[in-house]
Simulated scan of single mutants.
Amino acid sequence: MVVVNKTSVELNHFILKKLLRVRKANKNDLNEIYGIACSVGSSEKVSEQGFLVDDYRSNPKFYKKKLLKGINSLDHFYVAEYDKIYGFMMTYTKEQWLADNPDWLTEVYWRPDFDKSKLDNFVVVDKTAIKADLTGQGIGSLIYTRLLSDLKSEGIHNIFAETIISPQPNFASLQFRKKQKYSLAGMRYEDYNNNLYTDLIYHKKVE
């Protein structure tokens, strides 16, 4: 039996190396997922920590409904769990993404040298959220490893992800793209909630 002091800094690394498991989300996870979303998705955006665009605390009923829809419909909605949930990732198939974002392919300003044959079959990593005080500990990478494994088995070879650089840059997300060896594929402008965002579009080949 392992006994640890759960308030210690060492627990973070201990969980990651020995105890944390990644699994697909289910409806019973909703409240914990929502709590994590609130911890990094609020009115205060911290570039170095990373953030979600929406203020999840502003309308709990609305955002819980959106998250539950994702849990029930997405093939690649994962949570990282030990004694509780520490992070989650929402990933859309091409069909699911274009159903919600029908003009996405034409809205993106693709790099001239980008091979558009990679758009034949892909997924889009939409949201990756780690509990605010545990960002940078490798939890996102563990979830990502599970995603890659599942995509390989399903024959999906391309991943896209968006990172906001304006009006406030998400430095943590940019660093994660670099860590996971994404390459810049394009950019787009997004008018969302009366704000104009600039998103960099990153691509990674699943090998």
Rank of each mutant, 00 (worst) to 15 (best):
F122H: 04
P112K: 12
E81F: 09
Y109C: 14
F122C: 03
V108G: 06
M90H: 04
W110H: 01
G87S: 08
Y78K: 05
M90R: 11
R111L: 15
Q96M: 02
T106D: 14
F88I: 14
F122K: 05
I130C: 05
I130Q: 09
V123Q: 01
G70K: 07
N72Y: 01
D113A: 10
T106K: 15
A132W: 10
H76T: 05
T93A: 00
D83M: 13
A129D: 03
L105Y: 11
W104A: 15
D100T: 13
K69S: 10
G70C: 10
N72D: 09
D126Q: 10
Y82W: 14
E95H: 11
L119W: 02
E107M: 15
I85S: 04
K66N: 10
Q96L: 01
T106W: 12
E81K: 12
R111G: 08
K127A: 02
I85H: 03
G70W: 02
K66F: 07
F114L: 10
Y92S: 09
K66G: 05
M90Q: 09
D75I: 04
L67E: 02
N72E: 12
M89E: 06
Q96A: 06
K131H: 12
K94N: 05
R111W: 08
H76V: 03
V125T: 11
E107Q: 15
T93R: 00
G70F: 03
S73T: 15
K118M: 07
I71T: 02
F122G: 01
V123F: 04
F62A: 07
N72S: 09
Y82D: 13
E81G: 06
W104V: 10
P102V: 03
K61M: 12
